[in-house]
Amino acid sequence: MAPDAVKILIAGGFGVGKTTMVGSVSEIAPLRTEEPLTVAGLDVDDLLGIEQKRATTVALDFGRITISDDLVLYLFGTPGQQRFWFMWNDLAIGALGAVVLIDVRRPESSFAAIDFFERRRIPFVVAVNGFHGRHPYPAAEIRESLALPTHVPVLLCDARERASCRDVLVALIDRLIADVEFQPSPTS
């Protein structure tokens, strides 16, 4: 009997450490697929430079965590560049939730990712990647500067550390559990 499969997205701006995080917790080296870009994907963003426009494929990284005999969790690192966001919609379908990874030195590169999940009401946690393990700002300060509601967990992490990344995923699951437990059943 094939196992059940669920997925979590690891999102955030360009080069914030998404693939690194996937690799840190995955039981296999991150796998990669290259998708040819469709014409539809090319007009998504008109802010691109010429060089970027020439790219013809978009890469997708993912890893796997076997939860049990009958349940496997897949982690998908979403493509960082904004022009690839047409893929995010597809990726988001059926996801348990998302981790928005932030590079502490340039948090603005992940603003759009936060917007993406907020708008679609996809549950997410924010994980602040300290790069070089340094965390100059406490989580509360980051939450405030990002104007995040209190129900969105903010964690300081090191994308290179397995335990740190696992804690981020656990925080996401806890958030999801809290959502289920405290949501009044939809009767009206």
């Binding site: 094939a2 669920v6 965590i65 076997t66 049990s68 699951i173 289920v180």
Partner: peptide, 28 residues
């Protein structure tokens, strides 16, 4: 071949599943 679609959650995933994922993560 046979194909098994991923678990679909109409709206919210169920608590059992989430607890299972959480336990599994705790072991890594």
């Amino acid at each position: 071949i046979t194909a098994r679609p991923p678990r679909s959650f109409a709206g919210t995933p169920d608590l059992d599943l989430l607890q299972k994922v959480r336990d599994g993560l705790g072991r890594i």
